[in-house]
């Protein structure tokens, strides 16, 4: 008799506890930041410098970017410019807003828009590109542009760092632009348009946040682009001594 009651009590109790049991197994879902994609931001200026040319021209120049996002998707604002001190004018002013996502272990694809608003005619481009690390430690950034005028061009940027010591770094950079059609208004001829080659010796003074450098930069235009700039009385080739700092926050 009493055994029967306790059996019933046991079953009832057990049934009562069943929901608690299953609840306990999926007790809580992790909704903490750890379970979310990690969001990262950063600001980097590869170049932030004063340039002094073999023609006594003085320029302020920069090449940097700001990004925000996750491993899977980043938004990046890239900015590049050259400001002529005497003329008080932007010889070059490029801003790009791109979305960036991984396509392989070492490369990201990007797509977005580029706005060029220097002294003179403006241009807007659509841009697709890849950026990443190639074998043997070459940092590669390759882009394809289509302007609102329908002109297409491509740009390849490669950089290599040689560690003289762990803080004293010699960086070689090559930037080359090729146009697939002529855009006379902005001085771009078909074919190889221009190259910029730089050699910069930097020292990491504060972590990798502030690395002052000195260097030389060579800029040259080619083919029709060279003729266009000469026709306007400009230089097709310049050498610069540069003084600046690599920055990152």
């Amino acid at each position: 008799m009493s055994r029967g009651i306790s059996l019933i009590a046991f079953v009832v109790l057990g049934l009562g506890l069943m929901p608690a049991m299953s609840f306990a197994q999926e007790r809580m879902d992790d909704t903490t930041a750890r379970k979310m994609p990690l969001k990262i931001w950063g600001v980097q200026f590869e170049e932030f410098e004063y340039r002094y040319s073999d023609d006594d021209e003085e320029l302020g120049s920069w090449d940097g970017d700001i990004f925000y996002g996750t491993d899977d998707l980043k938004v990046r604002w890239l900015t590049k410019g050259e400001y002529a001190v005497d003329e008080q004018a932007y010889e070059k002013l490029e801003n790009q807003l791109v979305g960036q996502m991984p396509v392989s272990d070492f490369f990201d694809a990007k797509a977005g828009v580029r706005f060029d608003t220097p002294e003179g005619p403006d241009r807007t481009y659509g841009v697709v590109g890849i950026t990443g690390l190639a074998p043997q430690w070459f940092e590669i950034d390759a882009n394809l542009y289509v302007s609102e005028e329908g002109d297409t061009s491509a740009e390849l940027d490669a950089e290599y760092e040689l560690l003289l010591t762990n803080r004293l770094i010699l960086a070689a950079a090559l930037d080359a632009t090729v146009a697939f059609s002529e855009d006379r208004e902005i001085g771009v001829g078909k074919g190889l348009v221009s190259t910029e080659t730089g050699l910069r010796l930097s020292y990491d003074l504060i972590d990798r946040s502030f690395s002052p450098y000195i260097g030389v930069v060579h800029e040259r235009k080619y083919g029709d682009s060279e003729d266009f700039v000469r026709a306007e009385g400009g230089d097709a080739e310049s050498w610069f001594a540069v003084l600046g700092a690599r920055l990152s926050f």
Partner: peptide
């Protein structure tokens, strides 16, 4: 995340 070798100061020179 920005530079995986940010803190590595023992790299080969």
């Amino acid at each position: 995340k920005m530079m995986p070798d940010y803190y590595n100061r023992e790299q080969q020179t």
